[in-house]
Design a protein around this nucleic acid. Structure first.
Lengths: 194, 194
DNA sequence: TACTGTTTTGGTACCTGGTATTAAAAACAG
DNA sequence: CTGTTTTTAATACCAGGTACCAAAACAGTA
């Protein structure tokens, strides 16, 4: 009888963490088989690593998914705003991932690029409520999966409750998209009809 | 000693279903207390109603949330295409739901309206790959939650691999958004780099 | 009132996937 | 070869059940 090669403790534990990360549903028994060790060893490992038992793991996944915060399909603002000077300028970053591209070509769908620019244009306006009225946009070159879009919005002019906002989106300094938005502020009175 | 009012079986069971719908984490014991009956009664009820035990309920919630299908922010095409005549015209419908609006005002975010129009403009083009090059768009009036957007795209002109597509979006016949896209077809040769 | 059917309880044995603890065996290192 | 680390084993116990059986409690009615 020959025994199967076992990993050293350290290695096993790092693999265990990985393993549970992409399959939180594994029981200790499953893991024991996977690593060719006894159930007790797995339990010791979990103890040392502070990993909770199966049921707790599943529960926490379920709780997260039921959390109202997450369930908003898209975040409040598309892209992460990293600089914001109200009524002046703002910058946001968006990394193009699999869910943003055409599966056939791996090229980003235009409306995500637009969404980043549009939500930035709306966010930069110093008003309770701001809505896009018109826009002229240009896709300079296709954007591919993995590229990081940096959008910069600048408020160009202001006339009463209307602003012109210019947004330029670049990938590593290279211009890929431009847009000019006319954004209007709205009084909440709008809410009267209903 | 007076006993607390109990519901008839039928009522209890319908309430039980509701109760578990908005809190799948309740144990039989919790439910027994809630309805002032014994644990066994709850179990009989679950049996009759075909409701699985706590752990299975939690598990299924967790599985759903880990399902790769759900995690795609926006669907492949925004809105449901109900008519499509390639290179000529197309129509899609999108109902504005909670996830599409600003929570403060219940008004639809511009980029969803744009996304519906943009993906329709791209879909109507009879080509392997079509990308938006430029667009001029106008939001005629704000769109509110619950409204059904009907977008109609018409191919206006064609010049080699470039098309002009006009999209008008209406709610019950009332114009709320217009856009003119310049869409280009792409040869897959684009994929050469990388 | 006594009989009958439904509904509710109670109790027991058993299951899964653990925790907690103690102890022995094996592996490895100096 | 001894000391330490690592791995196994064994046992008692827990939550939240399933499956099953029998005793109550209640309601209607002949």
């Amino acid at each position: 009888m020959f025994r199967i090669a076992r990993l050293p403790k350290k290695d096993r534990q790092t693999r265990l963490v990985q393993s549970l990360a992409d399959n939180p549903f594994a029981t200790d028994e499953d893991l024991a088989e996977l690593f060719h060790v006894s159930i007790q060893t797995i339990r010791l490992d979990r103890l040392e690593l502070g990993i909770p038992e199966l049921r707790e793991r599943i529960k926490s996944v379920a709780e997260k998914s039921l959390d109202p915060v997450k369930s908003l399909g898209i975040e409040e603002v598309i892209g992460e705003i990293i600089d914001l000077q109200l009524d002046s300028q703002a910058i946001s970053v968006l990394e193009i991932k699999e869910e943003h591209v055409f599966s056939k070509t791996q090229i980003a769908r235009g409306h995500y690029i637009f969404a980043q620019a549009n939500s930035l244009a709306v966010a930069v306006i110093n008003a309770d409520v701001a809505l896009t009225a018109t826009a002229r946009i240009r896709f300079v070159r296709p954007v591919r999966i993995g590229e990081k879009l940096v959008a910069k919005a600048v408020v160009r002019s202001r006339d009463g409750d209307e602003c012109k906002v210019r947004v330029e989106t670049k990938v590593q300094g290279e211009l890929v998209f431009t847009a000019t938005f006319r954004v209007v502020e709205m009084t909440v009175a709008q809410n009267r009809h209903e």
